[in-house]
Design a protein around this nucleic acid. Structure first.
Length: 515
RNA sequence: GGCGCCGUAGCCAAACGGCUAAGGCAGCGGAUUGCAAAUCCGCGAUUUCCCGGUUCGAAUCCGGGCGGCGCCUCCA
């Protein structure tokens, strides 16, 4: 039984899809006018993980992330750069897609673009006018919030509350809370023909139009950053529910925002700025991207492995805001190394690769009876706890804790049976480790973690000389150790450490790794 | 001003009324090792910002205070 927190009801609800067995998820994506920053990755990583988990739980899931490729900010950017708006959009969309790929977000079924749905949008707006929920005003079309008594139900505020403050001039609008469905074009701006003249869609309407087109009038989960609850999602609700006379989405999920902590300046790797500008850096990550190139996500990827960032995002609950900093990411990197080391150990023991271990496709398929085996009893226990955590509003942070527990019992088992040393351990001894590791992989995959072996750095791959030399050095050192010449052996190890090469003497032989 | 969120060990973080308050990083002991590294074992919150209340029982619920933060027309 999966429960999730619904912004609409401000409480956790039992998850029951609109259509049995099928789940439609719509996530508000970026406005593609600048390169993505880390904040843009949070939603996709979370909802990609949610999809993976729901699929593993047996659902047939469709995930949609929209691309806003027409918007005031895009127009402004195109004017500054003196290139067409669609060129800006294409460039930034490509950047976004590359980043998603790096993050392992590949469960997205549709990336609808606003400019590809203009006629749907126009139909939507027309329908709202016909039904009396919207009005045309000098080439613009506005939604009349007074016509929708439930306006404010998602963000939990009332219209009188909101109207209380604004007042002032509203120009073409009847009420200050009315919002634009269609905006008339000024000279030189990109535009499309419409019943109200040349113009472009407002921001909110695209999501109503595209989600309906792809997922239907009522779908299951609508997601987005906490900052979008009002006005964006509130307006989507108004538009869709007034047109269709039924709920737009059953569950509204909002993720906490990523914030840069004060040390973030170091992240750029070229922080020579003054202290006061450093303070500016402590603002929300997105705000930094508007002024500095260094917060672009593709730059962050030069310093940190994408898997590390994914792990970091998933290491706390999605509704919590997350602070990120250089130190924090490095810490996460340290904790991840234990997993990589275990994967290598597993390979040494079994000859099999963790990354190619076949796993059950669904939770039911993976259920097993430990049959009293002490290791598998523990493995099964952690597996169940992992699922319990995930069932409880996708508590990835809690779930990851059990991944570490699982790792510990597997290492302990390999220690106890001295599996590193004995090359040909009997099958009955190795088997529980193999099964336990399969479970570890199953759980990691539902989070989209450790799917592929991290790519070797290009330099490392091509550098045969280094490999040959290391072979020679390790051989010479082995000779020294045999002769109890530990001074020489330690000198070799110490000098290699200085250049970032770690030497580890194991029962099975000496291994080296380079940072 | 309005609406809402958060405050758990040095740092990050789980826990949603009930067994010893997960787990990670850092630290300290120990096993192991020629010494290391890795791994394992153990230690670290007598208690969850403070005060009061409800309850047999509260980190969890209620009230007040202090501190941090978000949204209030276009930021994921």
């Amino acid at each position: 039984m999966i429960r999730l927190y619904n912004t609409l009801s401000k409480s956790k609800e039992v998850f029951e899809p609109v259509r049995p067995g099928k789940v439609g998820i719509y996530l508000c994506g970026p406005t593609v006018y600048k390169p993505s920053h880390i904040g843009h990755m949070v939603g996709p990583v979370i909802f990609d993980t949610i999809k993976r988990y729901l699929v593993h739980s047996g659902y047939d899931v469709t995930l949609v992330i929209n691309i806003t490729d027409v918007d005031d900010k895009l127009i402004a950017e195109s004017q500054i750069r003196k290139i067409p708006m669609d060129a800006v959009a294409a460039e930034m969309t490509a950047d976004y897609m590359r980043n998603l790929e790096a993050m392992g977000v590949d469960g997205v079924d549709y990336f609808p673009k606003a400019t590809e749905h203009i006629s749907n949008i126009i139909h939507f707006v027309k329908a709202l006018i016909d039904k009396g929920f919207a009005y045309e005003s000098q080439g613009d079309v506005y939604f009349d919030v007074q016509k929708f008594p439930e306006y404010g139900k998602l963000s939990h505020r009332t219209l009188t509350q909101m109207l209380g403050e604004g007042g002032a001039t509203v120009e073409r609008k009847q009420s200050s809370c009315d919002f634009a469905l269609w905006k008339s074009a000024k000279a030189g701006e990109p535009s499309w023909d419409s019943p109200w003249g040349k113009g472009r869609p407002g921001w909110h309407i695209e999501c109503s139009a595209m989600s309906c087109e792809i997922l239907g009038e009522t779908f299951d989960i609508h997601g987005g950053g906490l900052d979008l609850v009002f006005p964006h999602h509130e307006n989507e609700v108004a538009q869709s529910e007034c047109r269709h006379g039924k709920p737009m989405a059953k569950y509204w999920l909002h993720n906490g925002l990523m914030q840069a902590s004060s040390e973030v300046g170091k992240l750029g790797g070229r922080n020579t700025r003054s202290a006061e500008e450093g303070d500016l850096d402590s603002q929300e990550a997105g705000k930094i991207s508007k002024s500095k190139g260094s917060s672009a996500f593709h730059d962050l990827l030069k310093q940190f492995d994408p898997e590390l960032i994914r792990f970091f995002i998933l290491s706390s609950h999605y509704r919590r805001p997350i602070d990120y900093s250089f130190e924090r990411l490095e810490q996460v990197g340290t904790s991840l190394e234990a997993f990589y080391r275990f994967f290598k150990r597993y390979h040494r023991i079994t000859g099999d690769h963790f990354y190619s271990t076949a796993t059950p496709h669904t939770r039911d398929e993976g259920d097993f009876d430990p049959q009293g085996d002490p290791l598998l009893v523990q493995v099964n226990d952690y597996r169940n706890k992992f699922f319990e955590a995930m069932d409880d509003d996708f508590n990835t942070g809690g779930a990851i804790g059990f991944l570490f527990d699982l790792l510990r019992v597997l290492n302990k088992y390999a220690d106890e049976y001295d599996l590193d040393g004995s090359k040909n351990a009997p099958e009955p001894i190795v088997w529980p480790l193999v099964h336990g590791t399969t479970v570890l992989r199953e759980l990691c995959l539902t989070l989209g973690l450790f799917r592929h072996e991290p790519e070797e750095k290009p330099a490392e791959k091509s550098d045969e000389i280094v490999h040959k030399l290391m072979e020679l050095i390790i051989d010479l050192r082995a000779g020294a150790r045999k002769n109890k010449d530990f001074a020489t052996a330690d000198k070799i190890r110490g000098t290699l450490a200085e250049v970032g090469i770690t030497i580890e003497d194991r029962p099975g032989g000496t291994e080296w790794t380079r940072k």
